[in-house]
Nucleic acid binder design. Structure first.
Lengths: 348, 348
DNA sequence: ATGTATTACGAAAACGTTATAGTGTTAAAA
DNA sequence: TTTTAACACTATAACGTTTTCGTAATACAT
């Protein structure tokens, strides 16, 4: 078990200076062909690779990007990571992950842990708790130190940085319009509390679609769920609330849900109540995950193109990292990824 | 936008030496109280944090572990990552991810990219292609350089390293026994080609359970699927093959599938053919993912405790990293995580 | 007055690189 | 013969730490 070989060791072994070895391995014209060949052969034999950490220190550049997300066991976020990793690798970067677990303090700690030189920049989707507390000092501090941030999906408008978002409003609106086109007359909405920015935007899309078609929204048809991590008891609450919704409003013939779990449970409840999807009730969800795809009937959803979001975020970040840092031109862009309505069996 | 402050800058500013600053910040008794207070106050004001990269270089220790997995958009793997990240963070480590995407070369490249000083050790689940090619040189080389590896789930028995595996054989056997207890007499198996180690082991568990109960396995009841990434066309093939299986064997009253997707499609097909789950056919899958949990009826599955696997793997690795490297005592352990049968609606 | 501790700091090396600026030798040009 | 240029290297600084060793200055004991 020999340690990795270094320039110094090669130099000592071949009785030349470290500089000579370094240059020889870079095929510098300063070094004679003979010496170069000797050194290169030796380096190859011992499988020399420059030490990344030393390079990072020297160049003040780690070629690593940090991604902070609320949760990894989540189809959407893991797809984003895949996109980030793909682009990062293509462009010679590594990806280091930090999970906030929807907690503000873990988000802060994780960022501090990485901001001390470990990475060149961040890609972030903020935690629910951060959204609630609206405490964004850690983002500002990070950026003040010259470390760029790209936010995606759950962004904060007060912070000036590059962003990649999905058009939640439009996506939701389009989905509801689809239900209207399909002759639904009483469309329920299953959404989250308003502090979740995306939930709020999707709710607005729902309302706007109704308004455009001169349908007056009914408060009764709108169900706002509290925080719903995927625990058994919460699922039961979810199910019973939806059941309540259906029972008090038997006229419901369409449901738009702001995520796929809600949509799935809407279908579950409908079936339980003897309603056929899509003949009696049509359902559309948000987020194109596995559940929607493999459900029976499969769910029509608004696809967010998570991987594409990740790719775009990575490109934005790396572009910024590699641009000649002319400081003054601090111009940030917000890229909007358009959603697609993926029609499946839960709509006609 | 000021860069992060360094010891040198503090030293220059306060007109002391770098060593003094360093010691003062470490509360060394060598430094007078006065000076310490002055320096600490200054450092706090400018939010000084030691540069991680410099520390890594000095200590030849990055406090970062690399995790290489075939795919991240996968419930099992993302849960493992969550476990790894949890433990790593607790113990002061960061996690950097590499995706092999089931490709041998990407696995090798990713490992090489990280092995050059970026990380202290690896946690790996090998790609399908690597399993097929049986080329393990990159593992050996990495370990020869003194970098420890912990393998999980898809391990290779020829390599001497710490491992965390699930008892695939027992888990499968237990599942099939459950079906037998529940009076199933013609139990079908939906599995993968044999080169996938876990598929093979689960198949053996199936066979062993039958044998124990004096049931002669019928080749007709065993369906071996080729590689099935989650693409539309493959799903169709999957569905039609399963349909074929049911049609040629109408006596089937139980199905054991080596993953949840197969199990889900078995239920789909059964319903399509007018069979009720669990009354006519009982189904058990492997891997406790979202699909099983939210399917209708929900799927009885063999839970692998993915997060626990990740946690254990991280502990094993970090223990090794932090043990006094007495080289000689190269003792490796294989931790076996026991599976649980999670009973849901797809069995009686 | 001399020797010895103690206090409070600073210098320097080391981790592994790369890049800049020398340096000695030889060959060609003046 | 002297100057200049080319060649083939080497020395050194720097990236930001930590740590070992060294050293002034003061205090104390002899």
């Amino acid at each position: 078990m020999r340690r990795k070989i270094t320039l110094k060791q090669i130099a000592r072994e071949l009785d030349v200076s470290i500089s000579t070895v370094s240059k020889a391995l870079k095929d510098s014209p300063e070094i004679s062909e003979d010496t170069k060949q000797k050194i290169q052969a030796f380096a190859k034999l011992y499988n020399y690779r420059p030490n990344n950490i030393a390079l990072s220190l020297k160049n003040r550049k780690t070629n690593t990007i940090g991604i902070i997300i609320p949760e990894i066991v989540h189809h959407f976020f893991s797809k984003v990571i895949r996109g980030v990793e793909l682009v990062a690798n293509q462009r010679g970067y590594n990806v280091i992950i930090g999970l906030s677990n929807e907690s503000f303090s873990k988000e802060v700690i994780n960022m501090e842990m990485l901001a001390n030189g470990s990475i060149d920049g961040f890609i972030i989707s903020i935690s629910k708790e951060t959204q609630q507390l609206q405490d964004y000092h850690h983002f500002n501090e990070t950026m003040n130190q010259g470390m760029p941030i790209v936010m995606f999906d759950r962004v904060v408008s007060d912070i000036n940085c590059d962003k990649v978002v999905v058009n939640d409003f439009n996506g939701a609106k389009r989905a509801v319009e689809k239900l209207i086109e399909n002759k639904c007359e009483n469309i329920a909405l299953i959404t989250t509390k308003d502090y979740v920015s995306v939930g709020k935007l999707r709710t607005q899309g729902y309302l706007d679609a109704l308004q455009d078609h001169n349908i007056t929204p009914e408060a009764d048809l709108i169900l706002k769920m509290g925080d719903t991590p995927d625990y058994e008891e919460n699922l039961e609450i979810l199910e019973s609330e939806i059941e309540q919704l259906f029972k008090t409003n038997p006229k419901i013939d369409g449901v738009f849900a702001v995520n796929e779990l809600y949509a799935l449970y809407a279908m579950k409840v409908a079936r339980k109540l003897g309603l056929d999807v899509p003949n009696n009730v049509q359902v559309i969800g948000f987020t194109d995950g596995v559940l929607s795809k493999h459900a029976t009937p499969s769910l029509t959803t608004v696809s967010q193109h998570a991987q594409q979001m990740g790719e775009k975020a990575a490109h934005l970040l790396i572009d910024k990292l590699e641009s000649e840092n002319t400081d003054i031109e601090e111009q940030f862009q917000t890229v909007i990824i358009t959603t697609d309505l993926v029609e499946r069996e839960s709509t006609k």
